[in-house]
Design a binder for these strands. Structure first.
Length: 539
DNA sequence: CTGGGGATGGGGCCC
DNA sequence: TGGGCCCCATCCCCA
């Protein structure tokens, strides 16, 4: 037999010695079909062996329920088991999990032995969490695809509603579609997906024509817990931070009606009291990255067109562009705001899990325990205070409740907005932008450039630009400047518009400090008000 | 292409 | 509990 041609992933073969006549092409057969059939058969056989507990050399204990499986299969499917199960290990091995429910592990085991993942909106988060723990990028990406499709469906419905409301017109929707609903922000972000999506895409393709879903009765739901003799316990570092305390993870449901993990405390295999990730979980990075990549586009509120590349667990929030915020037509803004609402709605309706990781001494689970930490349900980050978790969650939800009224840039924190405003729009920095020399309020000139302001020393003004040509706040009178270069101050052109939104949040402080400065900066006081996305953008 | 600096984001923690 | 400060990491722009 020889390979005749290679058509992508489909290779055509013909028996050796056969003439290359076109009629013989019918006798060629598709090697891909054979491969798929063989894989299917092999997997089915393995699954049957698992159900009959034939050749099972590995026991997995999940919250007391015992699962029998084949070590080589687990080894091949999970990065976690690759770490746990060494080829040089004993003939039988076992692992114990309490970080996810037996049902969740049953789903994952079914996936391992069938390629089918029985996802629902109620279990997807926990399955993804478990897959992250087990370092199964393929499962994570299945969850990702599942949630993405769910979201896209709802977004399309929303767009159709918008279309109907607008009477069939409206280019804004198309603009939004061009961006992609909750898009990952372009090719840059797709990299993360591509890295490990290959298998999943193939899997998905196979699922399309795979008619056999393992019947429920083939599932293994062993009863009773037992720890087989000769079981191999994982290294202590896998289970506790310091090996001294049993670290547990409690999943608290925000909505008790949601189907989600039980409220029972679960011994955590990977938590620690610091970063929430044990050293042995370093290998989880890839899986976690996949999860975050999922969550980012899901909960993006501001319609990112440019996003910074994430590194590690940081920089996980969505990012804005000034142009998209300022220049989008009302239709787009409206659509975006509704999209944001939809994202928030989805965020709220997901089986949200607020994890609490703590070290419980003698089984004492109480909020007063000083070692209690709040775990982010979307990443491995843990914090001491609930408020800090709330703040942290903004980087996942994309919530940016503090818009800059001058440039519409949005911020997750008031302090960031203030810092931005003072730096960009108020020229609070007493440093010459040209020569970087330190300045004083009196010895510096504030230069306006659109809504931006900066200070410059008299020397630099005279040397580089010319004293008369700069739109300085303290020398605006009599200057024939373009309005765009002028910012409020005492001028009437833009001052009114500026004053329309710039009030005196810090006016008292200003008045106390320097009345002259107040006069100079009266057009750039910051009013801070937390706004809802939808409310702000519809305006 | 590279390094420096500014802008921004995020965590820890105090008040 | 929220606000605020400090610190550090990262990104981006520019020389």
């Amino acid at each position: 037999m020889e390979m005749v041609t290679d058509m992508g992933s489909t290779r055509l073969y013909r028996p050796s010695g056969e003439p290359g006549h076109h009629q013989q092409a019918q006798r060629w057969f598709n090697a891909a079909d054979i491969t798929v059939a063989h894989q299917r058969h092999l997997l089915k056989q393995l699954d049957q062996q698992r159900c009959q507990e034939l050749f099972c050399d590995c026991s997995v204990l999940v919250e007391g329920q015992l699962f029998r499986a084949h070590r080589n299969v687990l080894f091949a499917s999970s990065g976690y088991f690759r770490m746990l199960l060494s080829p040089q290990g004993s003939d039988t091995a076992s692992a114990t999990f309490d970080t996810f429910s037996p049902d969740t592990f049953a789903l994952i085991l079914d996936f391992i032995y069938s390629g089918q993942l029985d996802l629902s909106s109620h279990n997807v988060i926990e399955v993804m969490s478990a897959a992250s723990y087990l370092q199964m990028a393929s499962v994570i990406n299945h969850c990702k695809t599942f949630i993405k499709s769910s979201l896209e469906i709802s977004v399309k419905e929303e767009e159709e509603e918008l279309e109907v409301e607008r009477g069939g017109g409206g280019g804004g929707i198309h603009l939004m579609e061009a961006q992609g609903p909750f898009s990952c922000g372009g090719g840059d972000d797709d990299d993360d997906d591509d890295d490990d999506d290959d298998d999943d895409e193939n899997l998905s393709d196979q699922e399309v024509d795979r008619p056999h879903h393992p019947p429920p009765h083939l599932r293994l739901h062993p009863q009773g817990a037992q720890t087989p003799a000769g079981s191999v316990s994982p290294p202590p570092a896998l289970w506790t931070h310091d090996g001294a305390h049993l670290t547990k993870q409690v999943f608290l449901l925000k909505d008790p009606d949601q189907t989600a993990p039980s409220l029972a405390a679960r011994a955590d295999g990977g938590g620690d009291d610091g970063g929430g990730v044990s050293p042995a979980h370093a290998g989880l990075e890839e899986a976690n990255t996949g999860a975050e990549d999922l969550l980012d586009p899901l909960f993006t509120v501001s319609g990112p067109q440019r996003r910074r590349r994430k590194r590690g667990a940081r920089r996980t929030g969505p990012y804005y562009t000034r142009s998209s915020t300022n220049n989008d037509p009302p239709e787009v803004q409206e659509a975006r705001s509704q999209k944001a609402e939809k994202a928030e709605e989805l965020y709220a309706t997901l089986p949200t899990i607020v994890g609490v990781i703590g070290q419980f001494h003698n089984g004492d689970i109480s909020d007063s325990n000083p070692t209690m930490r709040y775990k982010c349900p979307f990443c491995t980050h843990t914090v001491k205070r609930k408020a800090d978790l709330k703040r942290h969650l903004r980087c996942h939800t994309g919530e940016r409740p503090y818009p800059c009224q001058a440039c519409n840039k949005r911020f997750t924190r008031l302090e960031h907005l203030r810092s931005h405003f003072e730096t960009i729009h108020q020229a609070r920095k007493l440093v010459c932008k040209k020569c970087k020399c330190p300045l004083t309020e009196e010895a510096s000139h504030v230069v306006c450039e659109g809504t931006r302001r900066y200070r410059i020393c008299a020397t630099c003004i005279q040397e580089e630009v010319g004293f008369e040509s700069l739109p300085m706040e303290d020398s605006l009178e009599g200057l024939d400047q373009e309005p765009a270069l002028l910012l409020g101050v005492d001028g009437e052109e833009e001052g009114e518009t500026q004053r329309s939104w710039l009030t005196s949040m810090e006016q008292e402080e200003e008045e106390d400090e320097d009345e002259d400065n107040l006069a100079e900066d009266s057009g750039t006081d910051l009013i801070i008000h937390e706004v809802d996305d939808s409310e702000e953008e519809v305006q």
